[in-house]
């Protein structure tokens, strides 16, 4: 595979680092890029300094993880050193942002856009705060409002990150597309779920509930991307439980243009990106396919009224 063009930017491959994983400074993002990641994502940036929750915040369950880190952020206007360090970068960066209201999203988006990220991702899907994130991603009116408002104040492509908690994620994706989103990223963590320690007789996470990620949510993620692919014509970053090249193939077949990973770093280390890229390339070679051949390949080409829409799908 050669480089990938995504929303007008060149990526060295179709693999993406999920928001909230490692993305705390410029140097670690560069290392992840060098370890085989085509597009790295900064941890979600919020409107004001925020510590997040007390520990335990992240627990591995073997089949995946549960987390309620709670959107820690230095605050959008306290990251000068990081933006400075990223200014001379030779790799693309996706900046994830969040807010508690449309106004906060707009304030953060406007500022962040001026710092020169390649993309801005609106996190309208985090389950781990009572006042931020997910409420925008489960309501069509709210999703439209925030996407539309942010789109008007930024000068880089806009990605909407969606939650599987939406009753109809395809509808939310379509609303975001109509509001000006250039791509969809799905899914954020699932649930939220809860793990109770029976000896301590209390939930393990300090926030009690938390988002699920990793292999246990892959079928949910694949279904969501499949639904979104049928609903929109903008490209999709598919993620949720991807750990191997074959997982990536499955996500492409559901309709993803790029494939993201997060929890996989727990199971295979930072070099999971190099490894999955190699596994993906090997699979494509063995099957005499290109990546373009398999994007959306799981969709029945003749079924349903939206098959014509698929033919006119914009190239990313």
């Amino acid at each position: 595979m050669d480089t990938v063009t995504f929303l007008g930017k060149q990526l060295k491959n179709p693999l993406v680092l999920a928001s909230g994983i490692l993305g705390n400074n410029a140097q670690i993002l560069e290392r992840v890029h060098k370890a085989g990641c085509g597009l790295v994502t900064l941890k979600s940036i919020g409107p004001a300094p925020r510590d997040g929750h007390n520990n335990p915040t992240v627990i591995d369950l073997g089949c995946g993880m549960i987390n309620a880190v709670g959107l820690p952020t230095p605050g959008y206007d306290h990251m000068d050193a990081e933006w400075q360090a990223l200014a001379d970068r030779d790799f693309p960066v996706n900046a994830s942002i969040y807010g508690g209201s449309v106004e906060e999203f707009v304030k953060v988006a406007q500022f962040v856009s001026d710092q020169g990220p390649d993309f801005i991702e609106i996190n309208i899907s985090c389950p781990n705060s009572d006042h931020h994130g997910m409420l925008f991603g489960v309501d069509e009116t709210a999703a439209f409002a925030v996407t539309n408002a942010v789109k008007h104040v930024i000068s880089v492509p806009l990605i909407a990150k969606l939650t599987p908690a939406a009753p109809d994620i395809g509808k939310i994706a379509k609303v975001c597309e109509d509001a000006g989103a250039d791509a969809i990223c799905a899914i954020n963590t699932a649930g939220p779920g809860m793990v109770i320690d029976i000896e301590a007789r209390t939930p393990v996470l300090a926030f009690k509930k938390g988002g699920l990620s990793g292999p246990m949510i892959k079928p949910v993620a694949v279904r969501c991307v499949y639904d979104i692919y049928r609903a929109v014509s903008i490209p999709i970053i598919g993620l949720g439980g991807i750990t191997t090249g074959e997982d990536a193939v499955e996500m492409f077949m559901a309709g993803a243009t790029l494939v993201g990973m997060g929890s996989a770093v727990r199971y295979r280390g930072i070099h999971v990106f190099d490894q999955v890229y190699r596994e993906l390339t090997d699979w494509l070679t063995a099957h005499h396919f290109t990546r373009d051949d398999i994007i959306g390949a799981a969709h029945d080409p003749i079924a349903g009224p939206d098959s014509t829409a698929k033919k006119s799908r914009k190239t990313p």
């Binding site: 994983i21 490692l22 880190v69 997060g262 770093v265």
Partner: peptide
Amino acid sequence: MRCGFGVCGACV
């Protein structure tokens, strides 16, 4: 530190 196993990035 938060996770202890290299994913959350708190301790970079």
